[in-house]
């Protein structure tokens, strides 16, 4: 737990000082929503389909930008090597990086949600608590896999290009279910309708978290 707290503390202090990850993600979020605002025509009939889809597309684009940056910081001065020559449990390093990535994704995710609601003048009448749960579950799935794949890509020359290429196909089950659950919430769907998607999201989050933690040692040692 010491390792987890130390790595998390280091990431948060670094981000509070530079603000480069959250600010760049936030700036990209604003640009995306403005572009969507000009290109999409949202009305009462298509709001339940279009907004959730574009919201989650934005989340994975912006989240991938953040993932690339968090590991670029580890590459500066080969700081990650300094961590790896210590006798720490590699799974604790993984959980710490997942938590810091999750924190950045959650901040930007809720900024994106606010921007979509504001720019498209949407009066959200659905279950807000359920929406928060769906967004957190989606962010957990994205961060667990994103952390693993960004570690894989860390030493490749094309890491910014490689990351989405290897991450997006695998993250599809999380995104599809998050979009469907969000669509139901935007359309005023109840808990019983949303529950199957929530269960699938929880299942994928657990599978991704456990398998990634198990293989992380091999991935990070070979990176």
């Amino acid at each position: 737990m010491n390792t987890l707290a130390a790595v998390l503390w280091k990431d948060i202090i670094n981000e509070l000082r530079t603000k480069e990850i959250v600010l760049s993600m936030a700036a990209f979020s604003v640009v995306l929503v403005v572009i969507f605002n000009f290109s999409l025509v949202i009305n009462r009939d298509n709001i339940g389909h279009l907004v959730p889809s574009f919201l989650w597309i934005s989340i994975i684009f912006v989240g991938t930008l953040g993932l690339s940056r968090t590991f670029a910081i580890e590459k500066e001065n080969s700081a990650i090597t300094g961590i790896l020559i210590s006798p720490i449990d590699r799974s604790m390093l993984y959980f710490a990086k997942v938590l810091s990535n999750l924190l950045y994704v959650l901040i930007v995710q809720f900024l994106l949600l606010f921007l979509f609601l504001f720019m498209f003048n949407i009066n959200l009448t659905g279950n807000i608590l359920m929406l928060i749960i769906v967004m957190v579950l989606g962010a957990v799935g994205f961060s667990t896999l994103g952390t693993l794949f960004s570690t894989m890509a860390i030493n490749t020359k094309l890491r910014e290009l490689l990351l989405p290429v290897i991450l997006f196909p695998v993250i599809i089950p999380v995104i599809i279910n998050a979009v469907k659950a969000t669509s139901l919430i935007f359309s005023g769907g109840g808990y019983t309708e949303i529950k199957p998607f929530l269960n699938i999201l929880i299942a994928f989050d657990i599978i991704f978290l456990v398998t990634s933690a198990l293989v992380y040692e091999f991935v990070v040692e070979e990176s």
Partner: peptide, 21 residues
């Protein structure tokens, strides 16, 4: 390579690495 984090102070860096051990 010095393995140090650019945006942490000298002491913060050293305390961080001490915690890893």
């Amino acid at each position: 390579e010095n393995f140090l984090y650019q945006n942490l102070t000298v002491t913060e860096n050293l305390i961080f690495f001490a915690k890893l051990y």
